[in-house]
Amino acid sequence: MPYCCVPGCTSYQRKESDKNISFHRFPSDSKACREWTVKVKRDIGPHFQITDNTRVCSKHFTQDCIICSLTGLHRLKRGSVPTLFTWCCELKPRRTLQRHQGVCDIETLEEEEEDQHLFPDQNTREEKEKQKEIAGLTEENENLRSQQFCLQRFQCEPKMILFYTGFKDYETLKALYLSLQPTAQSLVRWSQMQRLNKTEQTVTAGFHVHNICLFDQFFLFLCRMRQGLLSTDLTVRFNLSKATYQSDMYNLG
C-alpha cells in the first residue's frame, strides 16, 4: 500500500481510505519530478528512490490543485506542485533587502527577521528590576535626608527646637537668624583675624563653612550653648570632620 513520502507525514493509504485523502505519484516529467523532490525535501539516493509506490498525499496540495471526478476519484491538475508542509509554518518570516551599487547587479540578501516574541518577558523583567532598584535608592536617599541632623528636620517640631536651641518654635528662631544674617555673612573667626593682623592684610571674605549652610551653623552653635554638646558629638550629628569643626567652628562656641 502506498504511503506519503513527505518527512513527518504519517498518511498511509489503508489507514486513510475513509478520510477523503488521496495519494499521488511523482510526475513522469523529469523537471517536474525534480521540483517535487526539492519541495518535499528528499534526496534521491540509497535511502530514497522514486517508485510506483512513492506517493505524496493530498494534504500537501492546495484545494485548487485537486480535481474530483463524478466517480469520486481524485487527480491533480497538470503542473500541480506540493506546497503545504508542517515546516512551512515553523519557518520564521524573512525579508528581502535589495541593494544597488552603481551599474552592479542587484544583490538580494535574505536574512531572518528577528523574532520579537522571544525575549519580551526577559526585557520587561530587567526593566522592572531597574525601576525597582531606582525606587529603592530614592527611598533610601529620602530616609537619609529625613534622618539628617539639621534645622529642616525639626522645623515642624517646636518641642525639639526648644530642647536644642531654647527658642519656642522654628519661626521665632528663623526671625532671629534673619536679623543676624547680614552680620553673620561678614563674620571673621578670631584665629583668622589674628593671622590677618600679623600680616596686615585686608579682610576680603566673611566666615563660612562649605560643609553646612549658615543657618545650620547657627543651629550648631545654639546646640553647643544650650545642651553643652561636645565637639565629637557635634561632628557626628552634623556630619563634619573633626578638622573642619576645630578649624572653622570651634571659635563660634
Results as ranks from 00 to 15, higher is better:
residue 61 F to M: 15
residue 66 I to S: 06
residue 121 D to K: 09
residue 27 P to L: 11
residue 178 L to Q: 03
residue 151 L to K: 00
residue 76 L to A: 08
residue 69 S to L: 11
residue 160 M to W: 04
residue 69 S to C: 12
residue 182 P to F: 06
residue 138 T to R: 00
residue 107 E to N: 07
residue 108 T to S: 15
residue 10 T to P: 12
residue 75 R to I: 05
residue 2 P to K: 08
residue 120 P to G: 09
residue 106 I to N: 03
residue 112 E to D: 10
residue 215 F to A: 03
residue 189 R to I: 04
residue 35 E to K: 14
residue 235 T to D: 01
residue 4 C to R: 01
residue 246 Q to W: 14
residue 89 C to M: 10
residue 37 T to A: 14
residue 170 Y to M: 02
residue 170 Y to D: 10
residue 173 L to K: 04
residue 194 Q to C: 13
residue 1 M to K: 02
residue 120 P to I: 02
residue 5 C to Y: 09
residue 26 F to G: 05
residue 129 E to A: 03
residue 162 L to W: 06
residue 35 E to Y: 12
residue 93 P to W: 07
residue 86 T to W: 07
residue 194 Q to A: 14
residue 202 T to E: 12
residue 51 T to W: 03
residue 202 T to M: 08
residue 8 G to L: 05
residue 38 V to L: 14
residue 210 H to E: 04
residue 149 F to E: 01
residue 253 G to T: 03
residue 122 Q to N: 09
residue 193 M to Q: 15
residue 154 F to Q: 08
residue 111 E to M: 06
residue 109 L to G: 04
residue 153 R to C: 00
residue 152 Q to F: 06
residue 69 S to G: 14
residue 69 S to V: 10
residue 72 G to M: 11
residue 41 K to S: 00
residue 240 L to K: 04
residue 249 M to F: 15
residue 95 R to T: 09
residue 175 A to W: 01
residue 18 D to L: 01
residue 24 H to V: 00
residue 105 D to E: 00
residue 159 K to P: 00
residue 223 C to A: 07
residue 152 Q to M: 05
residue 4 C to Y: 03
residue 39 K to W: 10
residue 122 Q to T: 10
residue 179 S to G: 02
residue 171 E to V: 00
residue 24 H to S: 02
residue 77 K to P: 05
residue 127 E to V: 05
residue 154 F to H: 07
residue 14 R to S: 08
residue 168 K to H: 14
residue 70 L to Y: 13
residue 247 S to L: 14
residue 173 L to V: 06
residue 94 R to Y: 14
residue 81 V to A: 12
residue 230 L to G: 10
residue 247 S to A: 14
residue 243 A to W: 11
residue 189 R to T: 11
residue 205 A to M: 07
residue 223 C to N: 07
residue 67 I to R: 13
residue 201 Q to N: 13
residue 203 V to G: 09
